[in-house]
Design a protein around this nucleic acid. Structure first.
Length: 867
RNA sequence: GCCUGGGUGGCGGAAUAGGUAGACGCAAGGGACUUAAAAUCCCUUGGGGCAUAGUCCCCGUACGAGUUCGAUUCUCGUCCCAGGCACCA
């Protein structure tokens, strides 16, 4: 053991050992209980950032901990390797996306290895590998055959900068989630997955995922957005046709005074034709089409519409009601038509007010005296029905049910459910993605590629410099093919798939990454899946996690897996944040561009004082980032890992602090120095593992502390992943060992004390091994253990009797306020401790001459005297 | 507006089947070692009070009530912060 702790020599040494011995490679072993720990795989951007480090450190601690507990732990890592940045970088640097991607992967793999994460690198995969996306294409065809995929022309979210389609989930506040540009609507043909078929099941299972954070489940539920109500047909006046609407409030139908169609609704132009309203309607519809989705959806958007010149008939009272088209109606939701009841819907109320449409209240508010009708807003609550013919006097909840029964009886409507969730549009007009494996044949129409011809490989000789959009459609060799059916000339589909498709099944591929007869080896998936613990950022709460749940259901319905939910437990770790530094002349500054002196911070460029901003998520634009590489070079991977774990519990945001990192480094040095000081005394000593009764005074405290710490750290990790308190516990144990150290020199220690010291030291190493694996392995070896054996050591167990055989501190309260305390042997009965408490001088002082009403005793804890 | 979380020292954060509030770390102050500094080690550190300086007293977990012998923890109300959703009929 070296005198000085030098992470730069210790860490690479153990990383080499783990690599050579393939320490973390696993295979299915039916005799061992499995544990599948997965962290969300990264996009290979070129270098890992501190968010990755935190995510993967948390995961690594759990993986190593479970491994020490005897589980067969699958802990894989790979690359979410398709996507736009590769194309942009390729254009910028005149390289190829594949080259750029694989170089980035190599660089990041090296960085991850330098962190000492316990991955089974044999299972590494990259989604841009044809051997990977081949099976994605295979599944696409299976889904197509089963009618789970379809093609349609639709308005899509279009990002001009990225020249691609975005899924609804990829639009954030009306802008592209990647580049921030305002999203436009564009009509385009594209491929869709029928995720809406599973809306109900996905929703239902939100209540059957106890291992998931409530927050994520709520977000998913909201995203699916289930509403129940009725679908009702309104005959169109003067025609044989009818207008179908979805409403959640069939009970308010007597108050319907107008109808609204989405501007894109096919009936809009048809109904307006020849009514004299044709011109204003066409003008309105065209203006709406020109407006971006963003503008139309902005908050507080003024409601606006045009009368179509047509009417429909309310089926319950034959009332003739006007039909409008308006900006607030969405074609994608329900039937694209709204039954408007201004008295009981705020939006309809505003519209009616603007256009002078009649407002008929049909529900009397429960909290307002009868007869009152003048209101400045819609009433959306419950109450007694009025103005509703035969339903008058009934409670609206009852009328709701009766009206649905009435519609069903007369065939004018039915109970209905509507979801906010839309089908998943997966077409992207980009090069760097998995090609959709379909062929357009002038004779046979759309034909899937033959399975034997998979994968449909991305052509490598491509010139990306020619403008944006998909270069695939310009690649003649790729596009021109023959029809799998009639063998005539045909054209290939040039859309590639959304990269979320790859990440919807990679966790299954990890189970058998080299399998070449299917997406995965069923026996391997059967053994490893589902993932026991999944860890990643909350930013994936909706998209990635919902798509993965959907995909798993698809695989189940195809008989490929026998479970519905891929992730049993989910942990969403918080973000890494740091204060910003801003110079009046030079803008935001990187940490190394500012200089700390005299308790203030100055800009290195101009020497002026720097303004310290609020603590925010680390981002390049704010320059409040720190480079994991530099930290590792300076402090070592163990210190960086330790700080990430210690600074805050995993689900909470972590505020980066250079001083905090130094604190972590100092602690590891403290452990090192203690081990080094005592090494010659301990290396030939056996750890003391005897009964507590035989431990004499000197070592007794440390002995008990050791066992208490094992219990505490185990519970902190096992029950709640609170590594910060686990580390606190280990620090306390080290402090206790320094207590012995300050009392005696190592060679003065009696055999028993030395044994207890060794036991304490080994405990510290075992408990910290999952968190700081390198330094602990080094000291473990110095103690005479086989090199590299700590990674496979058993998690320590505590002795119950070591915790039990103790005196307890009893707190004395008078009227609930702390007035004194005393020590007594553990388990002393209530009467004994009450008696002792009543003798307490200070307590007596507070009791004074007031009569004692009651004395409450809690065994081993406290006595409260009530006066 | 709706849905989730969350408000505890100078700072990051401990403590919830209700039972000593502030573990552990950072920062700060004092001391030891040193020619000196760094490193290290030890001590102090929520606020206030006192003729008694203590095994002392009062206040204190966003704010206001309530339940209880006892509330950071449970209930109700209010305020503030963060994240998500937001014309979804």
């Amino acid at each position: 053991m070296e005198e000085r702790y030098d992470p730069q020599s210790v860490e690479p040494k153990w990383q080499a050992v783990w690599e050579q011995t393939r320490a973390f490679a696993v295979t299915e072993d039916p005799d061992k209980e499995k544990y599948y720990l997965l962290e969300m795989f990264p996009y290979p951007s070129g270098r890992i950032h501190i968010g990755h480090v935190r995510n993967y450190t948390i995961g690594d601690v759990v993986a190593r901990y479970k491994r020490m507990c005897g589980y067969n732990v699958l802990h894989p890592m790979g690359w979410d390797a398709f996507g736009m940045p590769a194309e942009n970088a390729a254009i910028d640097n005149n390289t190829h996306p594949a080259k750029w991607t694989y170089e980035n992967i190599a660089a990041m793999r090296k960085q991850l290895k330098r962190m000492g994460f316990s991955y089974d690198w044999n299972r590494e995969l990259a989604t841009c590998d044809p051997e990977y996306y081949k099976w994605e294409q295979w599944l696409f065809i299976r889904m197509y055959e089963k009618g789970m995929v379809y093609r349609k022309e639709s308005y899509v979210n279009w990002c001009e900068t990225c020249s691609t389609v975005l899924a609804n989930e990829q639009v954030e506040a009306g802008s592209c989630w990647r580049c921030g540009r305002a999203v436009q609507q564009k009509k385009l043909w594209g491929w869709f997955f029928k995720i809406t078929d599973y809306a109900e099941d996905l929703l239902e299972y939100c209540d059957r995922l106890p291992g998931w954070p409530e927050k994520v489940l709520t977000m998913q539920k909201n995203w699916i957005g289930k509403s129940t109500g009725a679908q009702i047909a309104f005959p169109i006046y003067g025609t044989d046709e009818s207008l179908s609407v979805f409403t959640t409030r069939p009970d308010t139908i007597y108050g319907a005074t107008f109808m609204v169609l989405a501007p894109e609704h096919p009936l809009v132009k048809q109904l307006a034709a020849g009514t004299g309203q044709e011109e204003p309607v066409t003008e309105f519809v065209e203006r709406m089409a020109r407006e971006s989705h963003t503008d139309r959806m902005t908050e507080d958007r003024e409601k606006e519409g045009v009368f179509l010149g047509a009417w429909c008939i309310n089926p319950v009272n034959n009332r003739q009601i006007p039909i409008y088209t308006a900006n607030f109606a969405l074609m994608e939701y329900g039937t694209g038509a709204v039954m408007s009841v201004p008295a009981h819907d705020q939006r309809d109320f505003e519209f009616a007010g603007k256009y002078g449409i009649e407002i008929i209240p049909v529900i009397k508010p429960e909290d307002i005296s009868a007869g009152e009708t003048a209101r400045d807003q819609a009433y959306t609550g419950d109450g007694e029905m009025v103005n509703s013919g035969p339903f008058d006097g009934m409670h609206n909840r009852q009328a709701y049910e009766d009206l649905i029964a009435y519609f069903e009886k007369h065939g004018t409507g039915k109970r209905a459910v509507s979801y906010r969730l839309r089908d998943w549009g997966i077409s992207r007009q980009r090069y760097w993605g998995a090609p959709v494996p379909m062929v357009h044949c002038p004779q046979c129409g759309i034909v899937p590629v033959d399975e034997k011809d998979l994968p449909v490989r991305l052509p490598e000789d491509i010139d990306l410099l020619e403008g944006g959009g998909s270069q695939l459609s310009a690649h003649e060799d790729f596009v021109n093919t023959e029809c799998p059916k009639c063998k005539g000339p045909a054209r290939r589909e040039t859309d590639t798939m959304d990269t979320f498709v790859e990440s919807s099944w990679y966790f299954e591929r990890y189970c058998s990454p080299d399998y070449d007869r299917g997406m995965f080896d069923p026996t391997a998936v059967d053994y490893w899946m589902p993932v026991d613990q999944y860890i990643g950022g909350v930013e994936h709460a909706v998209m990635h996690l919902l798509y993965s749940r959907y995909f798993t259901r698809v695989l189940k319905d195809m008989g490929l897996v026998d479970f519905k939910e891929p992730f049993t437990r989910l942990l969403t770790q918080g973000m890494v944040c740091k204060e910003t530094q801003h110079c009046a002349d030079h803008g935001y500054l990187y940490p190394e561009e500012a200089e700390d002196r005299d308790e203030s911070v100055y800009c290195k460029k101009c020497g002026n004082p720097v303004e310290i901003g609020r603590v925010e998520k680390m981002s390049k634009s704010k320059k409040n980032i720190i480079d994991p590489n530099q930290l590792v070079q300076y402090y070592g991977a163990d210190t960086v890992r330790l700080f990430c774990l210690f600074a805050s519990p995993p689900e909470r945001d972590l505020e980066w602090s250079e001083r905090g990192v130094e604190g972590g480094y100092r602690f590891l040095n403290r452990v090192w120095r203690l081990a080094r000081t005592w090494m010659s005394r301990l290396e030939n000593t056996r750890p003391y593992d005897g009964a507590p009764g035989e431990v004499d005074e000197t070592a007794r405290g440390l002995y008990i502390k050791t066992h208490q710490t094992i219990k505490r750290v185990t519970e902190d990790i096992e029950a709640r992943f609170h590594f910060n308190t686990a580390i606190s516990g280990a620090m306390e144990l080290v402090n206790a060992m320094y207590g012995i150290d300050s009392q005696m020199a190592p060679d003065e220690a009696d055999p028993q004390t030395a044994g207890v010291m060794r036991q304490a030291l080994e405990t510290v190493l075992l408990l910290l091994a999952p968190m700081v694996p390198h330094v602990t392995e080094e000291i473990w070896e110095a103690l005479g253990h086989e090199a590299g054996s700590l990674a496979n050591a058993s998690w320590p167990a505590f002795r119950e009797d070591a915790l039990a055989a103790e005196t307890k501190l009893i707190v004395v309260q008078v009227n609930g306020k702390l007035r004194g305390k005393f020590e007594i042997e553990a388990g002393a009965d209530d009467e004994t401790i009450k008696a002792r408490a009543l003798e307490d001088e200070n307590a007596i002082r507070f009791i004074g001459d007031k009569p004692i009403k009651k004395v409450i005793a809690v065994k081993n804890k406290l006595v409260n005297i009530v006066v």
